[in-house]
């Protein structure tokens, strides 16, 4: 009689929280985005307080003052002008609890533009670079304020595709973005301006919010950002991040030999290919192909039914491990073997 032999997975269950990291990640993205909206208002409020200006404010400014006073009361206590300085700026460059941080792309662009090494500025990128060496493109998945908008855009796109309104996106060459990075560096040198600051979505998002709140309104950056959203909708899924973003290119290069990687436990995998479908960057977890593009967003971990994906500390991906041991291919093989009367 044919018996259904199935190997029990001998690898341990991955840590239970890792299934929920994707939710945590979305919350982090939301937090960063909300902070980017709040910070300019906090700065405004601090300036109003420092200027003892409440009686001189317009009704609109007075509303900002009141709301911010209410929001920041627990942190600001009695001295908002000095107690609210812990976070300033945006993801391109800013201060986090007294530590100045900058995007490595800002440093690359600025060095290319002015051909001078200004050490205090170079050092601000030290921590991001170090983290990227360990974690790869984590900035793209976990911090970048544009990613939140791109993911919302992607969800809309997914529904439109299912309704048949939009076509499936096309695949392009992932190496295009390294070209964009190289051309950007070259143009920065040639023109003497940091051209990335005009086309880098996370900076555009942060800065346009700030322009909207504290300066002279949104500008060309918004138009550019909307165009990238259109590109994602009409041309390729998450196309800007995957094919064109110069920051993504830099982070991918830095994270080529990152230490923290998602890996497939072939013993637990059942070949359902959900991870391949859900990956926003169209990587192939089923083929153990993460490469330097993976930004550890853990979307694949969240959907994997047999919990076959886990984090490992390695500097390279495993070579393709073949079909999962819980999958139909293995099941068929097991059935064939038992039909011959041998022990599977």
């Amino acid at each position: 009689m044919e018996q259904h032999v199935q190997k029990q997975p001998d690898s341990p269950v991955p840590f239970f929280l890792w299934r929920h990291l994707n939710t945590v990640r979305r919350l982090v993205l939301l937090l960063v985005f909300c902070l980017l909206i709040l910070l300019p208002y906090i700065s405004l409020y601090q300036n109003f307080v420092a200027g003892h200006a409440y009686d001189l404010l317009t009704p609109h400014e007075r509303r900002i003052y009141d709301v911010m006073e209410w929001l920041t009361a627990p942190i600001a206590r009695s001295d908002p002008a000095n107690n609210l300085n812990m976070i300033k700026g945006n993801t391109w460059s800013g201060t986090l609890f007294g530590l100045k941080l900058s995007d490595p792309l800002a440093v690359v662009g600025q060095v290319a533009a002015q051909f001078k090494l200004y050490w205090p500025f170079l050092l601000t990128a030290l921590l991001p670079v170090g983290l990227t060496l360990l974690l790869g493109r984590f900035y793209c998945g976990w911090i970048c304020p544009a990613t939140l908008l791109y993911e919302i855009n992607d969800a809309v796109r997914h529904r439109l595709v299912r309704l048949g309104i939009l076509a499936q996106g096309r695949r392009m060459d992932l190496r295009l973005k390294y070209g964009v990075l190289a051309v950007g560096v070259g143009l920065s040198t040639a023109l003497g301006t940091v051209v990335f600051s005009a086309i880098y979505p996370p900076l555009i998002v942060g800065r346009e919010i700030q322009y909207w709140v504290t300066a002279n309104g949104v500008g060309a950056g918004t138009t550019f950002f909307l165009l990238t959203l259109l590109f994602d909708l009409l041309v390729a899924r998450r196309g800007f991040c995957r094919y064109l973003c110069p920051g993504g290119a830099l982070y991918a290069l830095l994270g080529r030999y990152r230490l923290v990687r998602i890996q497939r436990l072939v013993n637990r995998c059942n070949d359902c290919t959900l991870c391949d479908k859900v990956c926003p960057f169209a990587l192939r977890p089923m083929r153990d192909a993460f490469g330097q593009e993976c930004n550890n967003c853990t979307a694949c971990m969240a959907v994997c039914p047999p919990r076959a994906l886990t984090f490992r500390l390695r500097i390279q991906d495993q070579p393709d491990q073949g079909p999962g041991h819980q999958g139909p291919a293995h099941r068929r093989a097991a059935v064939r073997v038992t039909a011959k009367g041998e022990v599977a």
Binding site: L39, N47, A50, G89, W92, S93, V194, Y211, A215, N216
Partner: peptide
């Protein structure tokens, strides 16, 4: 060449004199 366009100066300016 040196300015990276982060907009921090405009954010912290107490009188919002700095524009871009």
């Amino acid at each position: 060449e040196a300015c990276i366009g982060c907009g921090l100066c405009g954010e912290v300016c107490p009188v919002q004199a700095i524009r871009f």
